[in-house]
Design a protein around this nucleic acid. Structure first.
Length: 373
DNA sequence: AACGCAGGCAACCGCGTCGAA
DNA sequence: TTTCGACGCGGTTGCCTGCGT
């Protein structure tokens, strides 16, 4: 309905633009603005369709377009945003000044996507390319019963699963709820729109003096008493495909812990879950909330979060948004910013290495998938 | 030097959405 | 409320270039 006619049908020119055409388009837009793309080609003396002109302008001729290789910071941002927004290239481009959606899309498909695949990570779900449903079915009953995982039983299926992979899967389960918690936090922010601005400021501010933080946490706590318990709903919907009803109830129960952790400005698994798994499989990572809060406060609108929630519910997959907190989740980078760390990387392999840290996985183990299958 | 292949990227296609009539 | 024009977006295509043989 209402589709613009194809250039072919109007006998208009297609294919690569000539410098003369570019100049015509630039001159016209500089003088008159683009106005209606439909009428622009005719007015500018171009034998092109308006669509083609718009694309050429927005993707190539626009004066504020940043040319050249993507920086590591940009790449990191793209990955983080993609983990939340999915293939919403225009939304991602809106957060990367000077970059076009087409450019980002191409860069994703030609560089980042392939790199993630090499790392054994599904670029769509940002999760390891394994059927994690199986792992959740193994893990969920143990989590539900609040007892230690039966290692011997798991070792009994060693040809299919090894403990390292289980540890990763466990982390993934944890990450999913952390991610949901992040969404919940944003929902709460939205629900606070009509509330006093100083409280919103607290939520949107990453670092504050302890006294001020404590005072505002108290205010937030008071407010939360009057807010519906969204985390349970979020965790239930996003984890339901992985857990049965009982497990979902457990997740709901645990959601309260996540909520509390959010207030403590730290992304942690439920203490119950973490304790059990830690005893069996060793320490689990604790993720600082720097990424979610910084990213959210810098980049996101309420609409974005509605999108993110929808995407998460649709994907039923794992989201690594909290895990993507690069600088604080990796102990090797504690004293270095992303830029200082990655600026020392100059090759594609270096980027691979950086990306591995970015995702905080034991990549070499993951890559050897054949060992588990 | 010639050829084939793969990667990168600009451009196109077609669908969805929005707003005006 | 329906229809239609225009625009924006995401997926895909095809050309160009660089590299290996």
């Amino acid at each position: 309905m209402g589709r613009a006619p194809c250039c072919d049908k109007n006998g208009l020119k297609k294919g690569p633009w000539t410098p003369e055409e570019d100049q015509k388009l630039i001159d016209y837009i500089q003088k008159h603005g683009h106005g209606s793309w439909r009428t622009l080609p005719k007015n500018a003396g171009l034998a092109r369709c308006g669509k083609s002109c718009r694309l050429r302008w927005t993707n190539y001729l626009r004066p504020d377009i940043k040319r050249g290789r993507f920086s590591f910071e940009e790449e990191e941002t793209i990955i983080q945003l993609h983990s939340i927004l999915g293939n919403k290239w225009s939304a991602i481009a809106a957060r990367l000044p000077g970059r076009t959606d087409n450019e980002i899309k191409n860069y994703w498909n030609t560089h980042i996507r392939k790199r993630l695949l090499r790392m054994g990570i599904d670029p769509v779900t940002h999760s390891p390319r394994l059927d994690l449903l199986d792992f959740s079915s193994l893990l969920a009953p143990s989590l539900y019963n609040q007892t230690q995982l039966d290692v011997s039983r798991l070792l009994g299926i060693e040809p299919l699963v090894n403990t390292e992979l289980l540890r990763i899967a466990t982390n993934l389960l944890t990450s999913q709820c952390q991610s949901s918690s992040m969404v919940n936090q944003r929902l709460q922010q939205q629900s606070l729109i009509s509330n006093p601005p100083q409280v919103q400021d607290h939520i949107l501010t990453t670092f504050q003096p302890p006294q001020q933080q404590q005072q505002q946490q108290q205010q937030q706590q008071q407010l939360q008493n009057s807010i519906p318990d969204i985390p349970a709903a979020i965790c239930t919907t996003s984890n339901a495909p992985f857990f049965g009803d009982q497990q979902s109830q457990l997740v709901q129960a645990n959601a309260g812990h996540f909520q509390a952790d959010v207030q403590a400005n730290t992304w942690q698994a439920s203490s119950h879950v973490q304790c059990d798994i830690q005893e069996t499989y060793g320490p689990l990572p604790t993720f600082n909330s720097q990424y979610p809060q910084q990213l959210i406060s810098q980049h996101f609108s309420a609409d974005d979060y509605n999108q993110a929630i929808q995407i998460q519910n649709n994907n039923h997959g794992f989201d690594f948004s909290p895990v993507l907190s690069t600088t604080t989740s990796s102990p090797t980078q504690l004293n270095s910013s992303p830029s200082t760390y990655i600026n020392s990387c100059s090759t594609e392999d270096d980027r691979d290495s950086y990306s591995s840290n970015l995702f905080n996985f034991q990549i070499p183990d993951l890559l050897d998938v054949s060992e588990f299958l």
